[in-house]
Design a protein around this nucleic acid. Structure first.
Length: 155
DNA sequence: GCCAACGTTGGC
DNA sequence: GCCAACGTTGGC
């Protein structure tokens, strides 16, 4: 199976919002802090040019808000080595890192944010992991069909 | 290697 | 603020 070309990534806007990405140098920043193996493994499958939906969690409104693309493939997340960082992992060493991150560049905000509520009501999106009850996965693949549906909703 | 307890995520 | 889901940890 070829690797998916589309992804959804969740972030709490109080921690790092789509606007924060837009305002980063070259609209580009690294996606650090992933500490879940499934999410990490999905990041490792990402290739330069893959498209990413930026989703805001734990806020109001809950919604997909912007488009980004992968500009650097998985490399070690530096925060795992930093004792003072909330994401510090004592088991990780520079010789044997555990956690990776990718770099994303903001493409543009969606003309219209697509709320979780809308996603739930839209046919064809039922299988998205995002919509599963109490879902915690922060990085997930999006099928081309789902991608088209969501982009239409987002204008 | 099992599984209960614990901690975190994140929608509600 | 609550709590369901679920990943992780640790005792055995």
């Amino acid at each position: 199976m070829p690797s998916p070309r589309y992804w959804l990534m969740k972030s709490e806007p109080t921690t790092f919002s789509f606007d924060d990405l837009v305002q980063s140098k070259n609209s580009t920043n690294h996606w650090d802090g992933v500490r879940n193996y499934q999410a990490r493994n999905f990041m490792r499958e990402m290739r330069v040019g893959d498209q990413v939906l930026f989703y805001h969690s734990n806020c109001d409104p809950l919604a997909a808000v912007g488009l980004a693309e992968v500009v650097r493939e998985a490399y070690p997340d530096h925060t795992q080595f930093d004792r003072k960082n909330i994401h510090y992992d004592a088991k990780a060493t520079r010789g044997k890192p555990i956690w990776d991150m990718v770099d994303l560049r903001a493409i543009k905000p969606l003309r219209k944010s697509v709320t979780l509520d809308t996603l739930r009501k839209t046919k064809g999106l039922e299988k998205m992991p995002l919509l599963r009850r109490a879902n915690r996965l922060s990085v997930m693949p999006v099928t081309p069909k789902e991608w088209d549906i969501i982009l239409k909703l987002g204008g």
